[in-house]
């Protein structure tokens, strides 16, 4: 269990210095309604790295995020978030948001609420505060719709505003629940590049959950692969392998590489039909 590090702590690249860890999960197990959702999950996230949380719907991704956010207590195991105030060291961008188009809230208002929205009283407006919000919106490429009602923005634009809302309080860890699910290919690529840049420039750990890993492959430093409630963690080329994933799923799977893309399919001995164990459109709990 490591203690707080200042956000500017130097990164010893590749050395995996424990001081860079911003999140550590040790043997996290979650039982809900008599079902085991997560089974002895352990991994850690480091500052400056982008991690993909990959798994099919129902693999436990959302549950894992809820545990990290402190919204759900694990049945067993420990979650350690570095920082003096763990609750405010984690920024979160939810999976779906349907904001009312008539909401009298501009993009800049929502980002300003990210600074101190949980405080009592009315914020004193100041030029410094206003400029801080503007800089944050510019940093995520949302400057040009700073004064637009948030509900009028497209899905990708709203997502940028929510990223700015989460980042402006200087979290050490940014969690995004399926941020690519409703984006077209180009917006998804832009979002992934933005998040990779944020991880490196702001020296924070970014974790992105996704049921499809291909959009993340070019940029992710590590993958946490969830299947059957268990997790495998490491660099993508060490985790996304037939032997590792077969152990995880508890039956044989094959990893097929087609150019830049990777497909995980059920192996021989199971259904002949090449199903994608991590590719469904149904809703996750």
């Amino acid at each position: 269990m490591e203690l707080a590090q200042p956000p500017t702590a130097p990164l010893s690249d590749g050395g995996a210095a424990t001081t860079d860890r911003v999140l550590q999960l040790a043997g996290v197990t979650v039982d809900l309604g008599g079902r085991r959702i997560l089974d002895d999950v352990s991994f850690s996230l480091r500052a400056g790295e982008l991690t993909g949380l990959i798994g099919s719907n129902g693999a436990g991704k959302t549950t894992l995020l809820r545990v990290i956010l402190g919204l759900l207590a694990p049945t067993r195991g420990a979650v350690t978030v570095a920082g003096p105030d763990p609750r405010h060291s984690v920024g979160y961008v939810p999976q779906k948001f349907m904001l009312d188009p008539d909401l009298p809230v501009r993009a800049r208002d929502l980002v300003a609420l990210g600074i101190d929205g949980h405080h009592l009283g009315v914020a004193r407006p100041s030029r410094e505060r206003r400029e801080r919000v503007t800089r944050m919106l510019d940093a995520v490429g949302a400057g040009r719709f700073a004064d637009t009602r948030v509900g009028r923005l497209s899905g990708g634009e709203q997502q940028r505003v929510l990223i700015a809302h989460a980042l402006i309080s200087h979290p050490r860890l940014l969690l995004l629940d399926e941020p690519l699910a409703n984006l077209d290919l180009r917006s998804a690529r832009e979002a992934v590049d933005l998040l990779a840049r944020i991880a490196r420039e702001q020296r924070i750990a970014v974790m992105i959950s996704a049921h499809e890993m291909n959009a993340l492959l070019p940029v992710m430093d590590r993958v946490v692969y969830l299947a059957e409630g268990r997790a495998a963690c490491g660099p993508a080329d060490e985790v996304v392998r037939a032997d590792v994933l077969s152990r995880l799923y508890g039956h044989r799977v094959e990893v097929i590489r087609a150019g830049e893309r990777v497909l995980v399919v059920a192996g021989e001995g199971d259904d002949a039909e090449p199903s994608h164990p991590h590719h469904h459109d149904s809703e996750e709990r």
Partner: peptide, 12 residues
């Protein structure tokens, strides 16, 4: 007193 928390909770 509740302006900011209530606004935040109403939007998100």
């Amino acid at each position: 007193l509740l302006w900011r928390p209530l606004l935040l909770d109403s939007v998100l």
